[in-house]
Design a protein around this nucleic acid. Structure first.
Length: 222
DNA sequence: GACCAGGCACATC
DNA sequence: GATGTGCATGGT
């Protein structure tokens, strides 16, 4: 799999828009939890309500009753679980002060390698592989590829091996994606492009997206 | 009204 | 290790 080529083709054909917004590192983390199996517009409503209530820091969440959190994040759905996950996330941050990025700038204070940091994130109840990778990429600025449903579908359409699960697919492509040596900024853009392409495919069919990519591949060869 | 959305945990086989 | 199901709202 030529990851750089796919990235460059998607860059030419699609735009990522204002991808993964968030004024602070913690807000990005909250977004990663709230967006699980829901749309970003729903997440925006929830975050807006949290901001209005001035509940958007680990300390503020920790000292806020769950009924209030639930009420604020309700638009994002699965609110009882996500409220618990937010508590677990704040606990994790407080227990790991050293790897907590400073609010307002996404500078990484952690000296942990990416695999260890990932394992630590996965130990948080409610944080699965995709949410962990979102946080690794957009908060800790680690160069990781997001093997979400759209990415897996695009890979499948390109004749690449895929698993039905996130982790299964990740293991299949881990080695080659690392060889491509994309940096965190490129990976962040890459993920945004893939979601844009996925949304386009939902409207116009996956064949359209596959055609766009394969035609570009052919163009480069000829 | 069915189906999906920028998933996860848990049960079961 | 792979598959099925509940979670729960909001949009199409």
């Amino acid at each position: 799999m030529d990851w750089r080529n796919l990235y460059s083709i998607l860059s030419q054909e699609f735009t990522a828009g204002d991808w993964w917004p968030g004024e602070t590192a913690f807000e990005v983390m909250v977004g990663a939890v709230l967006t699980q199996n829901t749309t970003w517009t729903s997440v925006e409503k929830a975050i807006k309500q949290m901001k209005s209530a001035k509940i958007l820091s680990p300390q503020e969440i920790a000292s806020c009753p769950s009924e209030t959190i639930i009420e604020l994040i309700k638009p994002a759905g699965s609110y009882t679980r996500k409220a618990q996950t937010l508590y677990h996330l704040t606990n994790w941050l407080q227990e790991n002060q050293k790897i907590y990025p400073e609010i307002g700038n996404k500078t990484l204070a952690s000296t942990l390698n990416t695999a260890d940091l990932r394992a630590s994130l996965l130990s948080i109840p409610g944080v699965g592989p995709e949410t962990a990778d979102d946080i690794l990429l957009y908060v800790y600025l680690r160069p990781v590829f997001i093997f979400d449903a759209y990415a897996r579908r695009i890979l499948e359409a390109l004749g690449q091996p895929v698993s039905k699960t996130y982790e299964g697919t990740r293991k299949l492509h881990q080695a080659s994606i690392e060889k491509a040596n994309l940096d965190a900024s490129e990976h962040g853009h890459f993920h945004g492009l893939i979601v844009t392409a996925g949304k386009y495919a939902r409207r116009h069919g996956w064949n359209m997206v596959t055609d766009i990519i394969t035609k570009n591949i052919a163009k480069k060869i000829s």
